[in-house]
């Protein structure tokens, strides 16, 4: 008798835990010849809200961690992902990729994470400045994370695309709510499992599955979400996002659709876009100088 295979339940990832959607709904992911691959959570706006609450809660301590520590943790994600390489390749094949493309996708993903792991304690030195003001003050500008970021995973490159948006956000100290691609949810959920075992504190990354139509709007209109990123959204959706984002002057970055396998799809800008520049002034003692020093 052949052994009965144990199937995996694909759940969402909120606050470091794997709940099912509070709505209790699911959708069937179909593979080739219309066979059911898996039941996937059809998350609701309440799941999106819960994810934002978790992300906000995690923001303070994540943003205050040392840059070095963030780098170590991001690198750890790459290590863990490498260790589950074959599982990801299988899943990507289930979702329709060829074996060769799936392997390329996973390898490029690991490399991308390593790339951003290295940025964690360096971008500050590139984007910060000491400013030569004319008065007797020491004045400097530093980058600080924007806050809670909503990410709409791209519809192409099931693993690499979402990682390319996700990792620069957390490398920069933000916390994230990511809406997985409706077409490619499996690798997003499995990535959550990798993240869960990578020293990433609960709530820093939250991943929900379902339809963009239902999940993006509650994120964009959420007053406690500070920024949104996405890539290659339709003009209508991008426009609707910008309109809703105005309710709390949210930062919105809809990047053009790109070939994620290219080196040009990674870079400092992806980190920098989710940073705020803070400028600090302090007087320099100047006894006897002509200028008043307060």
């Amino acid at each position: 008798m052949t052994r009965l295979q144990v199937l995996k339940t694909y759940k969402i990832f909120i606050g470091g835990q794997f709940p099912r959607t509070e709505s209790g709904r699911y959708y069937s992911l179909k593979g080739k010849d219309d066979f059911d691959i898996a039941n996937v959570c059809l998350s609701s706006r309440k799941d999106a809200r819960n994810a934002v609450v978790a992300a906000r809660k995690a923001f303070g301590s994540w943003s205050e961690r040392s840059a070095f520590n963030r780098g170590q943790i991001v690198y750890r994600i790459a290590e863990m992902l490498e260790g589950r390489r074959s599982q990801f390749i299988e899943e990507l094949q289930l979702m329709g990729l060829t074996a060769a493309n799936a392997a390329k996708e996973v390898d490029a993903t690991v490399d991308r994470i390593v790339y951003y792991a290295g940025w964690c304690d360096k971008y500050q030195q590139i984007v910060s400045s000491v400013n030569p003001v004319a008065s007797s003050h020491f004045n400097f500008s530093v980058a600080e994370p924007t806050g809670v970021v909503g990410i709409v995973a791209p519809e192409e490159s099931p693993l690499l695309g979402l990682v390319s948006l996700l990792i620069p956000a957390i490398a920069g100290g933000n916390t994230v709510v990511l809406v997985a691609s409706e077409k490619y949810p499996l690798s997003a959920v499995t990535l959550a499992e990798v993240i869960h075992s990578s020293d990433v504190p609960g709530g820093v990354i939250n991943i929900i599955t379902g339809t963009a139509d239902e999940l993006v709007s509650p994120l964009v209109s959420h007053l406690d979400v500070n920024a949104m990123t996405s890539a290659g959204l339709s003009k209508e959706m991008a426009s609707a996002m910008q309109v809703q984002a105005a309710d709390n002057v949210k930062r919105v970055f809809n990047y053009p659709a790109m070939d994620w396998s290219k080196a040009s799809s990674q870079g400092l800008s992806m980190i920098e876009d989710l940073q705020e520049i803070k400028t600090t002034w302090h007087p320099i003692e100047n006894i006897g100088g002509a200028t008043s020093s307060y």
Partner: peptide, 9 residues
């Protein structure tokens, strides 16, 4: 308002 709120407000 239909909008999820932030403690900032």
């Amino acid at each position: 308002t239909g909008l999820y709120q932030s403690p900032d407000y």
